[in-house]
């Protein structure tokens, strides 16, 4: 683990950029509150995963190259997503294998941290809960669980909050059916998966669904809303900030 840096890059992810900017701002605020200077390169966009997973590596590489350019300095790159984090950290080296940027992509990958991982392992953040008692539930997203392996960090932060009761899902580790373009290319299977996930969330009786990936939150949250189940889906960064302000 690196020692506490002065400055970090923040990689917002395209989905947070477009749909959940408040989650990104919360991540930035949490880092700033710990005394870290946050740099948000305006030239950043998407990690390239949608094209990469759909069978268009050339297009993915073109977009990924833009990210290599946008984050040139040696700062840690903090990303509020397991999925996009997995792309940057684990797939960029593969995507650029044999390309002129191979070494650069590897160095880039080495600098990537998922937000809660960074807060826990590098900053050793201590949270003081200032909110009313609340029951929440947690969805472990696949990439955060299996690629970035950061679920324990995220949940450890929730456990620091004394008025927050975490009610576990029956199938916390099961995919919600988002899968990026999967949800469009296999809409029926995706719908069946998210229906089960929404039902699982509903049976917890929690007041809120938390997770570390906005794609999954958009999927499950959208399914909950579609069914008029009044459980908002929220990114963990936003929740952590809200509880500690």
């Amino acid at each position: 683990m690196p020692t506490r840096p002065e400055k970090v890059y923040f990689f917002g992810t395209c989905l947070i950029d477009l749909c959940y900017p408040q989650a990104g701002m919360a991540g930035i605020a949490l880092l700033q509150r710990e005394g870290i200077q946050v740099v948000y390169p305006q030239a950043q966009s998407c990690c390239g995963q949608p094209a990469y997973n759909s069978g268009f590596p050339d297009e993915a590489r073109k977009v990924a190259r833009q990210q290599l350019k946008a984050f040139p300095k040696d700062y840690p790159i903090i990303i509020p997503s397991g999925s996009c984090g997995g792309m940057l950290k684990h797939h960029y080296p593969h995507l650029f294998a044999g390309e002129p940027e191979a070494a650069e992509a590897q160095r880039f990958a080495n600098r990537v941290f998922e937000l809660t991982e960074f807060l826990v392992t590098v900053l050793g953040i201590k949270l003081e809960d200032r909110g009313q008692p609340i029951k929440v539930t947690w969805h472990s997203t696949c990439s955060a669980l299996r690629e970035m392996r950061v679920i324990e960090y995220s949940k450890s932060l929730l456990r620091q909050l004394k008025n927050v009761e975490l009610i576990e899902l029956q199938r916390e580790r099961e995919c919600c059916g988002f899968g990026g373009t999967f949800s469009i290319k296999q809409p029926d299977i995706s719908a069946a998966m998210v229906a089960d996930k929404a039902a699982d969330v509903a049976q917890t009786g929690a007041a809120r669904l938390l997770s570390g990936d906005c794609g999954c939150l958009m999927n499950i949250g959208g399914a909950l809303k579609h069914r008029n189940i009044p459980i908002p889906a929220q990114h963990v960064a936003e929740f952590l900030l809200e509880r500690t302000q």
Binding site: D17, C19, P21, A191
Partner: peptide
């Protein structure tokens, strides 16, 4: 089967 994506008026950028 889901509510539509909530595109934000102001992006994170």
């Amino acid at each position: 089967s889901r509510a539509l994506p909530p595109f934000a008026r102001k992006s994170l950028h």
